[in-house]
């Protein structure tokens, strides 16, 4: 095979790629924040024991968990604004889509963690005369948080990967930046290989750290 690899083409444009990576991280962090906020509300609604609250929350989470995120990116970027005669910047549209979509998953993480705490713990708290809020804060959440940690990290990684779809809205995240470099250098192999490598290094090392922390947390919990 006569192909000559030229990674300098990528190196020369490293600044564009790194700027893109920065935007990916920014979108990820903001997405997690919005997703956690909305997801918390959804989980609380589902656990409220009132149908007027739990059913809408159930419908919402089921809908967003069972439809492709890309549809929601387009819906928030083209659909919603155009219907109202507005325009949304790509970042805002991507953040809205990402936040709403991941909220459905975060809600399940929270709900699952809380439901995994044994009923005996609720009863013991109630038997001491604790109110709902205090019981939640002092007894249930500290135990649920440990069990939520692993699925929470997993969902957050999924979210980071999902941010790449914002490239389809011409948002200058990592992949869009890569595409820009490709049009300038005609080196798709090198550029996309480096991009894959970047994501791999970031996500794999983060997951190793998370695993290590989790194992440490388990040991501390067993004490």
């Amino acid at each position: 095979m006569g192909y000559v690899w030229d990674f300098f083409a990528v190196a020369r444009n490293a600044d564009i790629l790194l700027a893109g990576l920065g935007q990916t991280l920014l979108l990820s962090v903001c997405g997690i924040a919005v997703g956690v906020a909305i997801g918390g509300v959804l989980a609380a609604m589902r656990l409220s024991g009132r149908r007027t609250l739990s059913w809408p929350a159930l419908a919402f989470t089921e809908f967003y968990r069972n439809t492709p995120p890309l549809v929601h990116f387009f819906w928030f970027f083209y659909g919603l604004p155009m219907a109202f005669g507005l325009t949304l910047p790509p970042f805002a549209a991507a953040l809205a889509a990402l936040g709403v979509q991941s909220a459905a998953f975060f809600a399940e993480v929270f709900r699952g963690g809380i439901l995994s705490v044994e009923t005996g713990q609720w009863e013991a708290g109630r038997a001491l005369g604790m109110g709902r809020v205090r019981l939640m804060r002092r007894i249930i959440l500290p135990q649920a948080a440990r069990r939520m940690a692993a699925p929470f990290v997993e969902r957050s990684f999924e979210l980071v990967k999902t941010t790449t779809l914002a490239a389809a809205l011409a948002f200058h995240e990592t992949i869009y930046s890569a595409m820009v470099i490709v049009t300038q250098t005609y080196r798709p192999l090198e550029v996309y290989t480096v991009v894959a490598g970047l994501f791999f290094v970031v996500l794999f090392s983060a997951s190793q750290i998370a695993e290590w922390l989790e194992a440490r947390g388990r040991r501390a919990g067993a004490r």
Partner: peptide, 22 residues
């Protein structure tokens, strides 16, 4: 690990745009 730790969009783009080169 490679396929679980990279976005699916990157994988699609790589097989469509990068693989032909090599």
């Amino acid at each position: 690990e490679l396929f679980r730790n990279t976005p699916v969009l990157v994988q699609l783009i790589w097989f469509y745009y990068a693989l032909p080169v090599v």
